[in-house]
Design a protein around this nucleic acid. Structure first.
Lengths: 203, 203
DNA sequence: CGATTGCGAATGAACGCTCATTCAGCGGCT
DNA sequence: AGCCGCTGAATGAGCGTTCATTCGCAATCG
């Protein structure tokens, strides 16, 4: 059944290769295309090039797999949007913010399938309480510098929640419009949006 | 099971009462609670006080039912947020906008189950092309006055898409945070958000 | 005015199918 | 040989959907 070229087998043993990652990659692609609940484990296994049973060597259940995948995507997005502390620390917090926003927007637009999966997970009721708790912790970390920035007068005096809503909300809507084919994302459109976002939160 | 007083209107036979609406109401409640795909038709029928087969007298399939429900919710939201033309026509477009925004926010916050269902439908791949097309038509109607308002200098010169992203995005994020119990919505929080939105789109 | 009949609405048990999950066995490694 | 990662056919629960049957009412008949 081995279809395409097999990877240049890991020397020493055939280890639990990056099979796990292959499974997750397939999950992202298929679920973004067919939906969380129209993607059977069998299809997932076929696409990843493993047997159905193999999935259960890496994840205890479909639900657990989705939850793990969700958290890994959040982490990946967090890494992709992290701004070096050096930039924040220097007197250019405004630039740090622009960097962050553009990275967040870019991530959602460059990885439509991953962004879509995050969206599906949030809407469906598949995420466990534990996952939600971990997510909130990550979110809190990511916005740790916010209070400092407000204190320095970088941002207007608003709560973190309002800040996040004003900053991230527009990105999510743009991403969704793009998914439905309603719009094409251009640099001009992004810049215009960022301009609006700045007016709403920057002091 | 007949709950409220039935209108005496329909002469001739016992007509299809508001059974259809009862089904849709149950759908909103159960789906918001258990998720689109963890809500079997059987549970829906039980909650609505009808037999399983009855559902198929009103809708040809589950998918068709969801699509119909989705469109009806969009219409309801459209009606709830519509601003009288008289207000728009008079020299107070700024007030018209404030009215619209607060109504949109209120609707999402006062009807968490309905808003949640809309969200779930958009994320899942259950909506048909036809439904998406109708939705876009409705959306275009709703934003018909936008160009005029820009011409009059009410709003900054931005595209409709950017406008919608900046205006609605924050509301969706707030609603989602509220659903997960992350925040409690207060008038102050809403006002702060609206203030930010105004800065981003109002000239 | 009561009995009878016609008919569409409503029922709910049954059907077929899909899908998550399991497990007995296989093949290659050391 | 012994181990281990992996396989994939088998399992059975749960779901959407169907349809033969029943129900309730109104018009018609005696």
């Amino acid at each position: 059944m081995a279809p395409t070229a097999s990877p240049p087998s890991r020397r020493h043993h055939h280890r639990p290769a990056d099979k796990r990652q292959a499974i997750l990659d397939s999950a992202v692609r298929l679920i973004a295309h067919s939906g969380l609940h129209n993607t059977p484990m069998s299809a997932l296994a076929r696409d990843a090039g493993v047997a159905a049973g193999t999935l259960y060597l890496y994840f205890p259940s479909k639900e657990a797999m989705i939850n793990a995948l969700y958290l890994e995507l959040l982490e990946e997005r967090g890494r992709a949007t992290a701004v070096a502390p050096s930039i924040v620390a220097t007197g250019k917090p405004r630039e740090g913010f622009e960097m962050f926003w553009h990275r967040l927007a870019r991530w959602h637009l460059d990885h439509p399938e991953k962004a879509n999966l995050i969206h599906q997970c949030q809407a469906s009721s598949i995420l466990t309480d534990e996952t939600r708790a971990i997510e909130q912790r990550m979110h809190a970390e990511g916005l740790a510098n916010f209070d400092d920035a407000v204190a320095r007068g970088t941002f207007r005096k608003i709560s973190v929640q309002v800040f996040w809503a004003l900053v991230a909300g527009p990105i999510f809507v743009l991403a969704q419009m793009r998914d439905t084919g309603e719009i094409e994302i251009t640099d001009a459109l992004l810049d215009a949006t960022f301009d609006g976002v700045c007016r709403s939160v920057v002091a």
